[in-house]
Design a protein around this nucleic acid. Structure first.
Lengths: 352, 352
DNA sequence: TTGAAAGCGCTAACAG
DNA sequence: CTGTTAGCGCTTTCAA
């Protein structure tokens, strides 16, 4: 007898001559079912073309979907252009992958905004990870907090109800700058990360500094200035990309008395600076020392190895994943601060 | 009176002194509700800390979640390292973003496998897009087909029940190779894409060619060989990355009589080949012509512009998104074949 | 414009 | 080991 609607567990149970609850157990394996019964149920299912319990019904019943949201406060194309974000996702997927259906990527559609409140409210999440956690995300946090969805932030500001995976941005940035100083550099400039909200490129002035915004931006800048002991001549990039780094490099280097060292607050920016230097006929590290931050793969710089602060990118994701697991299990994980270590490469040397 | 459990629509309705159905309408706006009533409901909700209708319950009732799955037949870190995949995702997000909660990324955890059947079966999807659609995915298709979930494939083989967004791989690859030939090159080699399943690097021999596998691999190779009119000396890369391209370049160039032109079947591979050439002291394009495929940004090649076949990466995603919309609306979209155009850059020139 | 009632498909007590 | 029963929280007829 043909049925036009999709078969349900009820149909399968009827066809196998058992009750729905027994059929349910046969699928979930969460109870005692004789092998014979179990097989009868599975056979009936196969025959009817039943694909297994409906995820939505199961979710409603169990009160969870197994879906973990990953929130980016920007458009997907921007978020995913950053190797650091990809590494984070990879670590997350590694840790959470076997558990549930997968990661729900929540991004905005505008250039700089994240997902809308409605979008967040409509997402069937068990937990959320803020991959780009800046102050402007406060409005993103609220709708999830109301729904009592466990949240994990990455390198964000400390917010009540949001577990945090942080790295030592200040210390690492200080260490990198100290390395530059120890080489004897005096004229040092910095290329800083986008100062959200309101990404724009240009020299960093008092007004921009005074805006509250990205914690990561502020911490890395602070590290650099703590090392120098004064405010640093800095260019603010509109994004962490090679292109932006190149623009920064041109702006900082194509002047009368260019710096002998540039501290970039991401490896992509550093790579762009190196490119700009080459275009201007400067050799790295002979004429210009360049340091980065992150420790991403930069095979195209070969044979140069970037001097940089290596942060545990994938590990951040793994730990965030473990925090999610803990939170879902009712445990309250401690905030984590991961170490970052200086890797001295071939892009820094004493000034001539 | 404190309540330990989260408030539901029933509580809100009771508190507002209306029926649940009215309260529901007040939230969805899908029916006639007086402004006064509506406001009362919203006020009650705010007071109780009700965050809006529960997504799971709503999904079960409506029979859809709004979630679109994006399936990758590999581990996340590999999938997301490819700018082509990112562009596709971006196009998808752009098209589908405003509609539902977001994109559910389904990847495997092993090096080369996609999500498990269980994972696919447990995912509350309205539709799925196969971002990496090779033959080996057949097992991925099946569980979704049984659940009657609409599917869209990208550059995959034509499969029943899977709408297809394709690009003219053969034609474009042929065109690129013809360009090389027209410059007068005789010794031409190719770097081909990973021949899944069983990625490995090495010279492409008869045995590898005869394996059935990636359609994209086969089509691009076919285009190249159609232009040449013979089989081409080729190196198979284990992935579409700069590093793999570099390894390929070394293998192909570090020999007695190296080719004067190399056709790489992706831009990342081409970039790696160029790097290898430079390392071997060869100038591009004077000593070696290199062509790619895809048309991604390669700012680090600057001032060189890659000769390549420019494919509409973001557009593929947008169109896939539109197909999903169509399928969900009960329409049956036509398969699409998008054009690819040759962009002659500075990496190809006549042989000396 | 509002309310009553049915039920989406499943799982988890509980009883046998 | 298996069956009965009661909802999960919501939307959607249908009737008032």
């Amino acid at each position: 007898m043909a049925r036009t609607t999709r078969p349900t567990l009820t149909h399968v149970a009827a066809s196998a001559g058992v009750s729905v609850s027994t059929a349910s157990l046969a699928f979930s394996g969460a109870g005692p079912v004789s092998e014979r019964t179990r097989q009868r149920v599975l056979d009936a299912a196969a025959e009817l073309g039943y694909a297994g319990p409906d995820p939505m019904a199961r979710s409603l019943r169990q009160g969870r979907t197994g879906i973990i949201g990953v929130v980016f406060a920007e458009r997907l194309r921007h978020a995913f252009r950053d190797p650091v974000a990809i590494a984070l996702l990879d670590g997350l997927a590694e840790e959470l992958g076997p558990v549930g259906p997968g990661l729900l990527v929540l991004t905005g559609n505008d250039e700089r905004a994240g997902p809308s409140t409605e979008q967040l409210a409509a997402a069937p999440l068990d937990a959320a990870v803020f991959a780009t956690c800046d102050l402007e995300e406060e409005p993103l946090v609220e709708p999830l907090r109301v729904r009592e969805i466990p949240m994990v932030g990455i390198e964000g500001p400390r917010m009540p109800g949001v577990s945090l995976v942080d790295i030592d941005n200040i210390g690492a940035s200080r260490e990198v700058t100290e390395h530059i100083l120890s080489l004897g550099h005096k004229r040092i400039a910095a290329v800083v990360l986008p100062w959200r909200p309101g990404r724009q490129r240009g020299f960093l002035d008092r007004a921009r500094r005074d805006l509250s915004g990205s914690v990561v931006f502020a911490d890395r800048l602070r590290g650099t200035e703590e090392a120098i002991g004064a405010s640093v001549h800095a260019w603010e990039a509109a994004a962490s990309t090679v292109e932006e780094g190149r623009a920064a490099g041109r702006a900082l280097l194509d002047v009368d008395e260019p710096p002998t060292a540039i501290v970039a607050h991401s490896d992509l920016l550093a790579a762009g600076v190196i490119q700009a230097a080459h275009e201007l006929g400067l050799r790295v590290p002979e004429d210009l020392s360049v340091a980065g931050f992150d420790g991403i793969d930069t095979p195209w710089l070969d044979p140069l190895t970037l001097t940089t602060a290596v942060q545990p990118m994938v590990e951040k994701g793994r730990i965030a994943g473990r925090m999610v697991t803990d939170l879902l299990a009712g445990r309250t994980p401690e905030d984590v601060l991961l170490p970052v270590h200086l890797r001295v490469g071939g892009t820094t040397a004493p000034p001539r």
